[in-house]
């Protein structure tokens, strides 16, 4: 696979993923509307739809934020990560629909511009129960729009992965704004135990998973404490690395991944050129290092994608001494071939 720009490649996995996503969203909305009309016969269809769309977006955003740490904690969740951007775009569309229907329902019947009414209607009154929660939702929607609009690989390649990743980290700001939007909006007016549990419980789960995953990641950012040999830093023992897998170490301020395959060792940057995914958590498939996030591949001794693809990552010199693995902290330019270190030297 390649990060080179091209139109969306649909495959069977994406069809299944998106089919489940569409079915899940429609099923949730049907269940929400049915339950609402059953429990509250006097509720209007517009109000039920506004609430259904809003809670669907919130549930989806909570799920999206859980996927990252879940994948760090247990690799079995990695398939959820594969098409996460489609979840994000769907969530944005749900949030946008919620906003549009809300503005029509609550702000379109006066003599003021509906958008102006929505953004200034409660601004003059400062107490908590009159806080202009619409502004918080609007700000969150703007962030989600920027993320959805730049979600395609074209923007990933154009902006470069670090900038793109920084932009998409704004999802945490959007999440905070949405939690406060609900807390200062819907939850101020009504005693909705279900909504309180949805927001509060989601908050606990999202933050809890991130803190657990972050705690487990913390050790990975400590400097390699091994011996130094001719400028090479010891990172682990050969036996610590399973066949076709990698050992991740912090060398020269960045993480590298030392892969073991076919009796050899090769070291590359741990950062995938696509979305900066953790290559060292992937494995070697068909002779190529394969990123666990989206399946982008690199030849282990060259740090370049197999032809005709053009992605490249830095490579590092590796040595094996007495069953210990040493890596030179100085990286080679991306795509530079480096002779792999042999685990067992051939006896003459």
């Amino acid at each position: 696979m390649s990060a080179h720009y091209q139109a969306v490649n649909w495959n069977r996995q994406k069809y299944i993923y998106d089919g489940l996503l569409a079915g899940g969203v429609l099923g949730y909305l049907a269940l929400f509307l049915g339950t609402s009309f059953l429990l509250y016969p006097s509720i209007t269809a517009e109000t039920a739809l506004i609430r259904g769309l809003g809670t669907a977006a919130l549930v989806l955003l909570t799920l999206i934020l859980c996927i990252g740490p879940l994948c760090r904690i247990d690799r079995r969740f990695l398939p959820l990560l594969y098409n996460r951007r489609h979840l994000g775009v769907t969530m944005f569309l749900l949030a946008l629909s919620h906003a549009v229907f809300s503005i029509i329902q609550f702000h379109a019947l006066g003599d003021m511009n509906p958008l102006v009414s929505a953004l200034t209607g409660t601004w003059r009154v400062p107490p908590v129960d009159r806080f202009p929660f619409e502004l918080l939702g609007f700000a969150a929607l703007l962030i989600l729009f920027l993320m959805a609009a730049t979600s395609h690989d074209y923007w990933l390649a154009t902006l470069t992965p670090p900038v793109w990743k920084s932009l998409h980290m704004m999802v945490y700001v959007a999440y905070g704004l949405i939690v406060l939007h609900v807390g200062l909006g819907a939850l101020q007016a009504e005693r909705q135990t279900g909504l309180t549990l949805l927001v509060g419980g989601g908050l606990i789960v999202v933050l809890g998973l991130h803190l657990v995953a972050g705690w487990r990641e913390r050790a990975g950012d400590g400097p390699a404490a091994g011996a130094v040999l001719d400028g090479f830093v010891e990172v682990c023992r050969v036996d610590d690395i399973r066949e076709n897998r990698a050992r991740i170490a912090l060398i020269g301020g960045e993480r590298v991944a030392v892969f073991r395959y076919e009796g050899k060792l090769s070291c590359v940057s741990n950062v995938c050129a696509h979305q900066n995914g953790p290559l060292g958590e992937g494995k070697i498939v068909d002779g190529c290092i394969t990123c666990p996030w989206h399946g982008y591949q690199y030849l282990p001794d060259r740090g370049s994608s197999p032809p005709p693809f053009t992605e490249r990552i830095p490579t590092f010199d590796v040595r094996v001494r007495d069953g210990r693995v040493f890596v030179n902290p100085r990286p080679h330019p991306p795509g530079t071939r480096v002779e792999p270190a042999l685990i067992h030297r051939v006896m003459p």
Binding site: K165, Y172, V173, G200, L207, H210, L250, G253, P278
Partner: peptide, 25 residues
Amino acid sequence: MNRRLRHRHRWMVLSLALVLPAAFS
């Protein structure tokens, strides 16, 4: 992610963990 992004991510999550539960409560 590279180290700079990981640090930024860590600080964002920690800030959120400190501020958001208190604000929501």
